[in-house]
Amino acid sequence: MKLQSLAAAAALTTCLFAGSAFADGRIAVALENPLAAKTKVVAGGAVFVCEGAECVSTAAPSRALTAVSCKALAKEVGRVAAFGGETKSLDADDLTRCNASAKAGVQTAEK
Rank of each mutant, 00 (worst) to 15 (best):
K2E: 13
L3K: 08
S5E: 14
S5Q: 14
A10F: 13
A11D: 11
A11Y: 03
L12F: 12
T14N: 04
C15I: 10
A18S: 02
A18P: 00
G19S: 08
G19W: 07
S20G: 00
A21R: 11
A23E: 13
D24Q: 14
D24V: 10
G25M: 14
G25C: 06
R26D: 06
R26A: 07
R26K: 13
I27D: 02
A28F: 01
A28C: 02
A28Q: 07
A30V: 04
A30R: 13
L31C: 10
E32P: 00
E32L: 03
N33T: 15
N33P: 00
L35C: 11
L35D: 05
L35P: 03
A36D: 12
A36G: 02
A37R: 11
K38M: 04
K38P: 00
T39E: 13
T39A: 12
K40N: 13
V42Q: 14
V42A: 14
A43T: 08
A43E: 04
G44C: 04
G44K: 04
G45Y: 05
G45M: 09
A46Y: 02
A46Q: 03
E51I: 07
E51T: 11
E51F: 11
G52C: 11
G52P: 07
E54G: 02
V56Y: 04
V56L: 15
S57M: 05
S57T: 03
S57A: 15
T58I: 10
T58C: 02
A59R: 11
A60M: 01
A60Y: 01
A60G: 01
P61Y: 10
S62T: 11
R63V: 15
T66P: 02
A67C: 00
A67W: 05
V68T: 12
V68F: 09
S69M: 04
C70L: 06
C70A: 11
C70Q: 05
C70N: 02
C70Y: 06
A72D: 15
A72R: 14
L73E: 04
L73Y: 05
L73D: 06
E76P: 01
E76M: 09
V77E: 05
V77H: 03
V77Y: 02
V80N: 06
V80R: 09
A81M: 11
A81I: 13
A81Q: 15
G84N: 09
G85W: 10
E86F: 07
E86M: 09
E86P: 00
E86Y: 05
T87E: 15
K88W: 13
K88P: 02
K88H: 14
L90I: 10
L90A: 10
A92R: 10
D93I: 00
D93L: 04
L95K: 04
T96C: 01
T96W: 02
R97N: 05
N99R: 03
N99E: 09
A100H: 02
S101E: 15
Q107S: 14
T108C: 08
A109W: 04
E110N: 05
